[in-house]
Write a protein that binds this DNA or RNA. Sequence first.
DNA 1: TGTAAGTCGTACATTGATGTTCAATAAAGG
DNA 2: CCTTTATTGAACATCAATGTACGACTTACA
Lengths: 207, 207
Amino acid sequence: MANSAPQASAKRADARRNIEAILDAAAMCLSRDADASIAEIAQTAGVGRVTLYGHFPSRAALIDAVVARAIDEGDVALGALDLSGDPRAALVRLIGRSWLTLVQIGALVTAAETALSEERMHELHQRPASRVEMLVERGQAEGAFRIDLPRSWLVGTLHRVMHGAAAEIEAGRLAPDDAASVIAATVLAAYTPPGEPVPPVDTWARP
Amino acid sequence: MANSAPQASAKRADARRNIEAILDAAAMCLSRDADASIAEIAQTAGVGRVTLYGHFPSRAALIDAVVARAIDEGDVALGALDLSGDPRAALVRLIGRSWLTLVQIGALVTAAETALSEERMHELHQRPASRVEMLVERGQAEGAFRIDLPRSWLVGTLHRVMHGAAAEIEAGRLAPDDAASVIAATVLAAYTPPGEPVPPVDTWARP
DNA sequence: TGTAAGTCGTACATTGATGTTCAATAAAGG
DNA sequence: CCTTTATTGAACATCAATGTACGACTTACA
């Protein structure tokens, strides 16, 4: 009996692969329909329903894991961005790079709202929004963004406009390639302080 | 046998009264929680579950009736509005009015989305949306609103910003009394043509 | 190659919601 | 006052989803 100390994370290769597949499938299914069934997720992942339950003890546990992973990925993508310089330019960069990721997270949050506790939700929702909030805060401090509306409202508006773009694409009323610039144009205008001119998008879109 | 031709609308007084109570209760429950059960609605209306089924053959039929009635009421209120004059001022008036109805409707839209067919939803949304669209069209023609974004996008933005305000209120991050002006400020800015100054809200808010 | 770990299908228990049936009861309204 | 119409609660059938149990079968990997 050599070293027989299999830690909790001593899964077999195929098991780890299946867990990834399940998380991928859950992210895809739940971002489309927050009420997607476990059976649907398992089928999409190409595994049996029982196998899924072998890795995630409950629906809530699965959703928790999916949301946590999605937020982690989004956080990494946001962290790699240079958000210094003019806040408007930084905002356009942020939108252009990460809007799809944010939309996916948003859809998952909807699913999580019914399955996870209030505290866990708050904890998960807080972290990714903080990066955007810091940018907005800096923009307000430098006079680039309006200060007559609550910061939380501005952050939420960005989130919702992105979500709206996804819906418009889904409905065929917006071309996916146009999304980033349309979002940027809308949010940039919405953030402009009253009395100041709305900046043309291409001013900040071209580096 | 005298005249025995009971038309379809020959209900008894208490029956009609109960139908109203059921519609009221459904509107209340479904605007709070789109997944409210039939039992909960019946109880709120003060009638038995069976009675409800006696008037509405299915959940979908009930939701359809509730949504139709709510949209009718909202449409009447919108029809009484004067939307002439400066498009920006008209927009602010329209927001102030439709915000009230939207608050009442609440999550009812969500309930309808899962219970009603796509065509029926589109059909119900058509009338109120057309009013907004006509105003936006006029605003664009007169140079008050931007023309670099699709009209459908502008209309959708108004819709989503209002829903966003409802969510923010629900989350306790926005005071209900501030909602209308916050919405107006955001949408007014988002609609402003690039290069032109964002109009201060109070310019148009005070008649 | 042997064995522990992982997977699969099926079947089962449970829960919660939607509709339906029925017989008893209440009340509208002529 | 009497008939027609409505309401009611309880019970039942159905359906879809969650989560569990078990036995047979694969596969990683040492």
